[in-house]
């Protein structure tokens, strides 16, 4: 078969735009997911009555659903709830944040649990309130311990954003598909997409391993 990879440089602008979208979605979903995830984790750790149970139910519920289904839900539901048009990007972003928060919450909860309870007791002893000790003493240590796992989750999330394909948002994969269909170069484009994802994710995972080693030596 004849392969012609010149379609890639010829469409580099579109592909770069797509990759920007992929990165933007990943970054915002990480930030949003971590904020909401930390909040959920704290509710459970602090055993806030009722809210802790709600947080647990939330986490288990979202972890039982396929991401695609959550994307479909929010894609059609967010504009209805807001009562005004919401861009496809925003709807999808909300879906990712709600979904990823469940996973981040579990990671962060494990991280907090790994911090010795003596730290909390010591912080309380010098007069800090419970929430002060949590945010100033426990959480910073937990995040440090959890950094490699959080980064690994970020790589997974980066890969997961390719699922926006199902609603046609122009991320890296969809941009490549547009080129593939228009220029009839499907084999080349999908191979290219796979190589790019592989190089990015593999490099990132090497970085995470390096970091883990550094932490272990500290």
């Amino acid at each position: 078969m004849d392969l012609d990879f010149s379609v890639i440089p010829a469409n580099s602008e579109l592909l770069v735009e797509g990759m920007k979208m992929t990165f933007l979605l990943t970054a915002l979903a990480i930030v949003g997911g971590m904020i909401l995830g930390t909040f959920l984790a704290l509710l459970r750790i602090a055993k806030v009555p009722v809210l802790a149970q709600i947080a647990a139910a939330y986490v288990n519920f979202f972890r039982s659903l396929p991401l695609i289904l959550v994307i479909f839900w929010l894609f059609f539901l967010v504009p209805l709830i807001m009562g005004r048009p919401v861009g496809a990007f925003s709807s999808v972003l909300v879906a990712f944040i709600l979904f990823e928060a469940a996973y981040y919450s579990e990671i962060i909860r494990a991280g907090i649990n790994s911090v010795s309870t003596g730290q909390l007791a010591a912080a309380r002893a010098i007069g800090m309130t419970y929430w002060q000790s949590m945010t100033n003493v426990v959480l910073p240590q937990a995040f440090r311990a959890m950094t490699p796992i959080l980064l690994t989750q970020a790589i997974i999330l980066f890969q997961d954003t390719s699922l926006v394909y199902v609603v046609g948002l122009r991320d890296f994969l969809v941009s490549a598909e547009i080129v593939a269909n228009r220029d009839q170069r499907l084999v080349e484009m999908f191979l290219f997409v796979a190589v790019v994802y592989f190089v990015l994710c593999f490099t990132a995972s090497l970085g995470v391993k390096q970091l883990q080693r550094k932490f272990a030596n500290d």
Partner: peptide, 18 residues
């Protein structure tokens, strides 16, 4: 390393289309 670092959707397309 190969299978973990390519999104599953892309892998599915490789198997189906390529």
């Amino acid at each position: 390393e190969l299978f973990r670092n390519i999104p599953i959707l892309v892998q599915l397309f490789l198997w189906y289309f390529v």
